[in-house]
């Protein structure tokens, strides 16, 4: 007689055989010790799998999951705070250092130290109102000329450092905050 196939035995244990096929299988199993032994061996696998105990989770995963799901505003690292203060200071220094340079851009003298008074400002506004052409006509542009002990190297270094600090500072600030990590698409 024909023995039961592996497929029949598997489906028998999975309870997926149609009733008629199941009845045939059962009558064969009653008559055939070989097939019954094969069924027992297969059934052992089922019971070994279902006897596998559940393990305890050693740590709570929820905090990590929630953290990964919440877009975090990055707290400013201490170093970065210092960088910001340093940037401001450096910018101020550079500004002051560049004032004489600014002055030499123009032929006429800007009263660099004394703050303009209100009537002074008004007068200037008045002059500006004379018209753009007239306004520009008052100036002659010339190459920067340094009269103080600031060398152009000093200015260059100052401007360069400020730029560098700015780039570093903002580069860190604008670093993408932790994105939700993920790998591969769910199929």
């Amino acid at each position: 007689m024909n023995h039961l196939t592996d497929e029949i035995l598997n489906e028998y244990l999975d309870n997926t055989l149609p009733p008629a096929a199941r009845a045939v299988a059962e009558s064969h199993l009653r008559a055939c010790a070989d097939c019954e032994l094969r069924l027992d061996e297969l059934a052992d696998v089922f019971s070994a799998l279902s006897a596998l105990p559940e393990l305890e989770l050693a740590r709570d995963l929820s905090a990590d999951v929630v953290r990964a799901l919440t877009p975090q505003p990055m707290p400013l690292p201490r170093l970065l705070k210092w960088t910001a203060a340093l940037q401001a200071a450096a910018a101020l220094v550079a500004l002051i250092a560049s004032l004489p340079l600014l002055q030499t851009l123009f032929v006429f003298e800007i009263p660099a130290v004394s703050l303009p008074t209100v009537p002074d400002l008004l007068a200037r506004l008045d002059q500006m109102a004379l018209g753009v052409q007239e306004f520009f006509a008052r100036f002659q542009f010339q190459a920067p000329r340094l009269t103080l002990e600031f060398s152009s190297l000093f200015i260059t270094v100052a401007v360069f450092s400020v730029t560098l600090l700015w780039l570093v500072g903002n580069g860190l600030l604008l670093r993408p905050s932790n994105q939700i990590r993920s790998q591969g698409d769910l199929r």
């Binding site: 989770l57 050693a58 995963l61 999951v65 990964a68 799901l69 993920s182 790998q183 769910l186």
Partner: peptide, 12 residues
């Protein structure tokens, strides 16, 4: 553990 965490993130 890593995969469980990943699974929850995917589920979310």
């Amino acid at each position: 553990e890593d995969m469980a965490q990943e699974a929850f993130i995917r589920a979310y």
